[in-house]
């Protein structure tokens, strides 16, 4: 009796250790990534001053004279991201309102899987779609448009983000209790008034969080911009221009033959660190908003 109980106890302990190891893998990997990212970045800053990196307006690490001002990459990233949000925020929110407040059950059952499929399309496919379908249309309207341009990548990235905004916002709206809708209807409100005077205000934290998370996803998105937005780091806000984002620069250098340990090689880590810090803070802000402003009905 005692012996078998002892065996059971040992097995229990063993399982616990295995599970703990499994759980620690992702934590350890994250720590490893952060450490390698920041140590290489530190190496980069031994050769390039922090001031040049953050205030310089030229980014030409692959040519001489080499300049290491990250502003053009940040501008490129922001340009594409803002275009994507201009597309994704209204469409995502509108489809969330439709799904949560208007759609009959049958329609909802049809649309939700379609949106999920949209979310599951590999980003390379979106990139191709931007380059071979959207860009020609833009060029037909604005002939001066570059083959690689921020607008096309931004629009397609926005389409990619719609399901994310829509499903997170819809979750927030469906969580608004029906008793609040009934209260508004009983006061003579129309469906539209119920949606935007009761449901949206009550779900606003979830909606804002979905925007922030989508924004962060857009900043880190790589494939679409690599394919469709170009590889010309340029400090511009013209959406028809070819630009380069932070992520696309990293791809460019990694695919090229920057020698290990060279300054070009290290510049990738510096850019990646900026990317990491920006998306991490946005994600933290997003989850903080969800928690902080959670409505208690």
């Amino acid at each position: 009796m005692v012996d078998s109980a002892g065996k059971g106890f040992r097995r229990e302990k063993g399982v616990e250790i295995l599970l703990a190891l499994a759980a620690s893998v992702s934590v350890l990997v994250t720590i490893g990534i952060v450490v390698s990212l920041f140590s290489e970045t530190a190496g980069f800053f031994k050769e390039v001053s922090v001031k040049e990196f953050f205030t310089g307006t030229k980014w030409t690490p692959l040519f001489s004279p080499a300049h290491y001002g990250i502003a053009p990459l940040v501008a490129g990233t922001m340009l594409v991201t803002v275009i994507a949000m201009i597309v994704a925020a209204p469409l995502g929110l509108a489809s969330a309102i439709y799904l949560s407040e208007y759609a009959p059950d049958g329609v909802r059952r049809l649309i939700k899987p379609v949106l999920e499929i949209l979310a599951g399309i590999p980003t390379i496919v979106y990139g191709y779609f931007a380059l071979t379908f959207v860009t020609p249309i833009i060029r037909a309207v604005f002939p001066q448009t570059n083959v690689f341009n921020a607008l096309s990548a931004g629009i397609v990235m926005g389409i990619m983000l719609i399901p994310m905004i829509s499903s997170l916002s819809e979750d927030a709206m469906t969580a608004v209790p029906n008793s609040l809708r009934e209260a508004a209807y009983a006061l003579g409100a129309t469906k539209l008034e119920v949606s935007y005077k009761v449901v949206i205000p009550a779900a606003v934290s979830g909606i804002v969080a979905s925007f922030i998370l989508a924004f962060s996803r857009a900043i880190g998105e790589t494939m679409i911009v690599t394919l469709a937005a170009g590889s010309t780091p340029k400090l511009t806000f013209n959406p028809l221009d070819s630009i380069q984002t932070m992520t696309a620069f990293i791809v460019q250098v990694m695919l090229g033959d920057a020698p290990f340990g060279s300054i070009e090689y290290k510049s990738v880590y510096a850019v990646a660190s900026v990317l990491f810090v920006v998306t991490l803070s946005l994600n933290l802000i997003g989850t903080w908003i969800v928690r902080r402003y959670k409505e208690v009905y």
């Binding site: 209790p177 008793s179 609040l180 009934e182 209260a183 508004a184 009983a186 006061l187 009761v198 205000p201 009550a202 409505e295 009905y297």
Partner: peptide, 12 residues
């Protein structure tokens, strides 16, 4: 007008 079983003020 109508008043319901459970008080349902708006979160305002």
């Amino acid at each position: 007008g109508m008043v319901f079983q459970k008080p349902n003020p708006f979160p305002k």
